[in-house]
Design a protein around this nucleic acid. Sequence first.
RNA 1: GCCAAAGUAGCUCAGGGGUAGAGCAGCUCACUCGUAAUGAGCAGGUCGAGAGUUCGAAUCUCUCCUUUGGCUCCA
Length: 627
Amino acid sequence: MPTCATLVPLGNQKECPGQGQKDRGFFIFTPEKEPEMSTRASLDPKAQEKADRLYKIRHTTAHVMAEAVLRMFPEAKIAIGPPIDNGFYYDFDLPRKLTEEDFETIEEHMRAIIQGKHPMTKEVITRNQAKARFNDQPYKLELVDAIPEHEEVSLFTVDTFTDLCRGPHVENTKDLNWKAFKLLRIAGAYWRGNSDNPMLTRIYGTAWEDPKEMREYLDHLKELEKRDHRRLGRELDLFHFEDDNPGQIFWHHNGWTIYRLLMEFVRESIGRQGYQEVHTPSVMPKSLWDRSGHWEKYQEHMFVTESEKRLFALKPMNCPGHIEIFRQGLKSYRDLPLRMAEFGSCVRNESSGALHGIMRVRGFVQDDAHIFCTEEQISSEVALFVELLKGMYKDLGFDEASIIVKFSTRPEKRVGDDATWDRAEGALAEACKQAGLEYEIAPGEGAFYGPKLEFTLVDALGREWQCGTIQVDYQLPSKERLDAGYIGEDGNRHTPVMLHRAVLGSLERFIGILLEHYGGAMPVWLAPIQAVVIPVAPAFYEGAQALAKELENEGWRVLADLGDERMNNKIRIHQAQKVPYMLVVGEQELASRTVAVRTRKNDRIDGLSVDEFKAMIDEKIQKKDVL
RNA sequence: GCCAAAGUAGCUCAGGGGUAGAGCAGCUCACUCGUAAUGAGCAGGUCGAGAGUUCGAAUCUCUCCUUUGGCUCCA
């Protein structure tokens, strides 16, 4: 089964002026290739050429679609239309609502345009000429103004449609295949990605060199659905949601087993770095949130409650609680760095449209910790954290190439003065330098109290999810806020810097990522059920049960399947349940204390002694092997 | 929250103004059965919720809820 792919270097994405800044390098599905989860590895020259061709095809197809839409709605206002992963989109301001029933008409127009074999011509003009050309296109006028002074202003024309565009494009629509594109969906998108701006109608499409490729891509998408964590959650009996309680997860035994194992893994890992673990209340008074700044900056995301005329809120973050603990007793510089961890249960009132399976929910648990330290200790603490994160991600199956690191700078909505932000951002940048960490800048994406590093992983469909993070905070511990003080070497009172950090981010989201990464076939150490003992016939049920019991007593998660089904069906069922090992036992095995091992990958090892099997999976678990 | 689509049995889906169907799963019974489905029988749904149109609504209309794909926001 082909999964995803490789990437075009990041430079390519900015070909179309005004394209949303969030668009990144794009993933290319390559039909012939056997694939892993996406990596950011660079392409070989041949693949690069193909990527460039597809880029042009998709870009030009976006223009062709724009012309088709203008044929239907001559009064439409056009915005932007870049190529993206596997396709393209174009944003329009239309006189009426569009539905998917309109696709047929648009596609017909597009096919006609492509078959017209029109050349794609480029002209370079001045800014004023451009403004005159687009005087009835307000979005284009804005884009002209946004083009930096030193860059040329160019137009591309295909057939009757001229667009402000940097290119590149195919030379002629005969380079497009009229059977190898398809409009996929309609979505609203805010002009320039800003929710204060009007919402435009975005049409997404896919385009390829030939129809076979497109077919393979569409089939591939269907395959990917099998890795969807929501589907796996149901099929493997991991968790569920209730319609009247959106964004709140009900963990079933299997799912909770993974959850518990992951928590234990976190405990062991951070324990080695000298963290202490604490637990703070879920309900905290408004007075605290007032002081922390959350009431002012974060209230819309908080569930608020009342008791005897006093307001409280369910905690959306754990930081204030940790400061409360830090404040107990007098702290000395000798106590720093103090690393305080909590499996912090957070509740956030996320907007309904943002919810997504277990990846984005309203109730979740962070593997949170706050490091109270001096300014001088920031870089060594960041370095230590990066080391911890990389090690843990590696154990969980994510190598460095699959982690995207972003440096998020000060947002508009923030607390603290600019001088302090300068220091915080500077300290974090310096720490990255010392840790040898490469990152991309995400301007304005920081937390309201400080800049952050984000460690992002990718799901089955190539969507990015922030998981780990470390954030530098001079604000919350300050005297004006929550007032965490310590006595320094000089005998005076000082304010520590607080580093907010999480490795997995939220257990929920990380499990979602893990499920999609492994397609539900969890590594043996994380599998809810590690082995099922299958007797070949009812006569061996007792022996099978005894073996399962023995393994269970020794700490493995093992079941015996004593149902009415025949052995063949049991194998099928447990394989579908992604159980790593099936132990088939009959007369021969029971007599000789051996097992016939069958793995979920269909490998078979017959005549393995029970002790050999134990040693084998013990080793796999120790080494955190997949199978 | 915004734009688009969807919601029929536990799951996947068919049907469609006269009051609901399949496969799988479930339950019961039978079968001494060696590496991806043993057979037979039974049971399962106020067709997401509410209102309206109609002699009659699961089917048409409206409102709401949830979910999916995007946008915004975020662990």
